[in-house]
Design a protein around this nucleic acid. Structure first.
Length: 771
DNA sequence: AACGTAACTTAGAAAGGCAACT
DNA sequence: AGTTGCCTTTCTAAGTTACGTT
């Protein structure tokens, strides 16, 4: 009974969600659920105790048993990463039509659903029997918690110690650290430092760098011992428009108050962006704008369409033109100014080392631009005042000075977090932070750890795959759904897919997939059991993919969608929370996103091994690397808008190719003629001419090949973004090892920023590294 | 458990800058 | 010298996950 109710609970939420215009708060939803679900128990809680569940399940059916047998015989399709890359990936999309179908969600089918779904699930649940493994790890979890607490306390005590005398590891980190630090003892460390000192003046930049990866890893919860910085840089005050730039309302000249004018300029600057043509954008903007007006202005300005921003718009175009046309000297002055800013605000001192800050500039006010169909697009992002900003630094540090006449919201000394300053953005009311640059120790160490976790998954992934395949035939619906969900996450590198509120764009990940996002094809394009995915993921990027799946998965999906409406959750019994909990029990530190890292890095390693040959030129090797990189980007669905100049530059390239072809034709004709001449009247001169022409043809053919390669490369890259995976998913040690092994200069693969971020990997990796 | 929130990672667009072409 | 096209950097939105509270 409860199981069935459990399912309703989540489906119910989706229904409410589709009623975008309704004013229901999330709290109301619960109430509704109770009212409408007459047949259900009134309790909303989901069963937590497996024992509780046992009683609810009824007799097993032969059907389920049968299925179980089949599943065991299924082959592991996931094992072949090649297959994975082949299937995953964006196809040419028709976003307009797509959005249309996705957006239309029927409005109210609560009753219908309740009834239907209940009936069906009832049936299925009747077939579910006692859980096989009823060992709950609850006790285990408790213990872990306690242990963590103890460790935390221990760490707090050690807080006072200085950075250089790094404490020995707490028991929790023992394992990880042994792996990482086996090389150097403290003595070696010291020696190295001294040596470094000697070289100091030779290579300023090099010697200055903190080789934190050569030190033993510091604790997990204590992020620093000492932290000092100069606070954030505030956006410059608003500089009012010159009187020569008019604003008209309904044909009448209107002098706006500075505050009102400032907001008007935000809109004016965006006038030729398609954003401003959207109704939601206009409404949100206008509402927020009016709120900031003086009462006088508010009385006058009532309709956005009567506002004439065109002069402002023109003014800003001219200004940017001016900026472009500045002389070198003027540009130089600006450059120096900005580097002074970096000098003053761009760095902090963390545990005695100067570290780069990532975003030391506070976000300036402006209009919020969400991605996709964001309901809040166009809203006013307010100016951040010092009174909104919290500062985090160490107790003994000099507290950054707030701008004259202002004070900070608060100053804290919390070394369990990494941020230097934080504030609440006013659009969603969520905190934002000023944190360190990716090249910093704090970020680097975490990054390293991430890849180590992914490598751990490599060790136990087979067991996990076995487990989720077992779950496909579980007698418990929840387990089946979890099994299929983890399978998707593993095979397709889907994101976890948290629930979202209506205040954001309607995008989904694995756990939040709805019935409407998949279609099942018993047979498609000569393949069996094909699932067609079509949904908007993070950043409203479309995921479209047709994937053949195991028969048992297919059967399960059919079961999951039975009697559900398109806008119901596909996985109505699971959430990211309990999915991650289950994963964590398989392997400490394992969560859904680890699969993405793991599969991405594994794919890169495999592809590199496969695509690189010793006899290749450096250029060819780089091409191979990019191909491998692209396989990963496709797997992770990293897309970009096609470059604006794509068609044009493609055409240019094709013209070049055409020309080359013509050249080849001509050269061939000449060759033929030369050969004929040589046959008719053999001579040394003729023979040489033939040779010369042969070489020419050969050379031209090679050039053609290169161009054509470039063409396919560019075509394939049209909507694929390689950067994201390179920066976030691919263990840099794979790349470094590959470069060393194949004598490819690292600069050809990583640009400056990337080298900075991955300095640790570049220093510590030798060519034998395998992910 | 459910919920809310904090902290941190991941993401694509836009701006900026630079070098190769015309 | 101006233009074009590509790559890098900056910006900040949008995810995930951990954790505390109710």
């Amino acid at each position: 009974m409860k199981l069935e109710k459990e399912g309703h609970e989540k489906s119910r939420r989706t229904h409410e969600r589709s009623e975008k215009k309704s004013t229901h708060s999330s709290k109301d939803r619960g109430k509704d659920a109770e009212l409408n679900g007459k047949h259900r128990h009134s309790s909303k809680k989901r069963p937590s105790d497996p024992g509780e569940r046992q009683q609810e399940s009824a007799v097993s059916s032969s059907g389920v048993k049968h299925e179980a047998g089949e599943a065991d015989m299924d082959v592991d399709a996931t094992a072949d990463p090649d297959e994975r890359t082949r299937h995953a990936g964006p196809q040419k999309s028709s976003p307009a039509g797509h959005n249309h179908t996705l957006k239309i969600r029927s409005k109210s089918c609560k009753e219908r659903l309740n009834h239907k779904e209940k009936k069906d699930l009832n049936h299925e649940d009747g077939n579910l029997k006692k859980e096989r493994n009823k060992d709950s790890n609850q006790g285990d979890g408790e213990e872990k918690k306690m242990k963590k607490k103890r460790v935390k306390e221990e760490e707090q005590e050690k807080n006072q110690q200085s950075a250089k005398k790094r404490k020995k590891q707490s028991p929790e980190h023992d394992k990880a650290e042994k792996k990482k630090v086996k090389k150097e003892g403290d003595a070696g460390e010291e020696q190295k430092k001294r040596e470094r000192g000697k070289k100091e003046d030779k290579k300023d930049e090099e010697s200055d760098k903190w080789k934190w990866w050569e030190e033993s890893k510091s604790s997990d919860s204590q992020k620093w011992s000492r932290l000092e910085h100069n606070g954030p840089y505030f956006a410059p005050e608003y500089d009012p428009l010159p009187a020569s730039v008019p604003f008209y309302y309904d044909g009448q000249l209107l002098k706006l108050s500075p505050a009102t004018e400032e907001i008007a300029t935000f809109y004016a600057k965006m006038l030729d962006h398609e954003y401003t043509s959207k109704e939601a954008f206009q409404n949100n903007f206008f509402t927020d704008w009016r709120e900031e007006m003086t009462s006088e202005e508010r009385k006058q300005i009532k309709t956005l369409s009567k506002c004439d921003f065109s002069h402002m718009h023109k003014h800003f175009l001219e200004k940017s033109e001016e900026r472009k046309n500045m002389t070198k000297e003027e540009k130089q002055v600006l450059k120096e100014e900005s580097s002074r800013l970096v000098e003053q605000y761009g760095f902090c001192v963390l545990d005695g080392h100067r570290e780069k800050i990532g975003n030391f500039k506070l976000e300036p006010p402006g209009l919020f631009r969400g991605r996709g169909e964001h309901p809040k697009m166009g809203k006013l992002k307010k100016r951040i005042q010092p009174e909104h900003v919290a500062i985090n630094c160490s107790q003994d540090a000099k507290i950054p000075e707030a701008p004259a006449g202002h004070r900070w919201k608060r100053v804290q000394h919390d070394n369990t977090v990494t941020w230097l300053a934080s504030w609440l953005e006013n659009i969603h009311g969520r905190p934002k932070y000023i944190m360190l640059n990716p090249s910093s120790k704090l970020k680097g160490e975490k990054d390293w750890q991430k890849y180590e976790t992914a490598r751990q998954l490599k060790v136990c992934v087979n067991a996990i795959r076995k487990q989720y395949k077992r779950d496909w035939t579980s007698r418990e619906m929840k387990s089946r759904q979890r099994g299929v969900a983890i399978y998707f996450i593993d095979k397709l590198a889907l994101r976890a897919g948290n629930e979202k509120d209506e205040e954001s764009a309607d995008t989904v990940g694995c756990c939040s997939l709805r019935v409407e996002h998949i279609s099942l094809h018993r047979r498609l394009d000569g393949l069996e059991h094909v699932v067609e995915f079509d949904f908007l993921g993070k950043d409203s990027i479309r995921y479209y993919n047709k994937v053949p799946v195991e028969k048992q998965v297919f059967k399960n999906l059919k079961l999951f969608i039975k009697h559900k409406d398109p806008e119901d959750d596909l996985f109505d019994r699971i959430t990211t929370v309990n999915l991650n909990k289950a994963l964590n029990e398989c392997m400490p530190g394992l969560t859904a996103k680890v699969f993405r890292t793991f599969n991405a890095s594994t794919t890169l390693q495999d592809q590199l091994n496969k695509l690189t040959a010793e006899d290749m030129t450096v250029e060819e090797k780089i091409l191979s690397y990019n191909r491998a990189n692209r396989a990963v980007a496709i797997l992770c669905n990293h897309q970009r808008a096609a470059p604006k100049t794509f068609e044009k530059s493609m055409q240019l390239l094709q013209e070049k190719i055409q020309k080359k072809k013509e050249q080849i034709e001509e050269a061939k004709r000449e060759l033929k003629a030369a050969k004929k001449a040589h046959r008719d009247a053999p001579s040394d001169r003729c023979r040489k001419l033939v040779e010369k022409k042969e070489k020419l043809v050969q050379r031209l053919c090679e050039q053609l090949k290169k161009l054509q390669l470039q063409e396919t490369d560019r075509e394939e890259n049209k909507v694929i973004a390689l950067g994201t995976s390179k920066l976030n998913y691919l263990d840099p040690r794979i790349t470094v090892a590959w470069c060393k092994k194949h004598n490819v200069p690292i600069e050809k693969i990583y640009n400056k920023t990337q080298r900075d971020k991955f300095t640790w990997a570049i220093h510590m990796t030798d060519e034998s590294f395998q992910f």
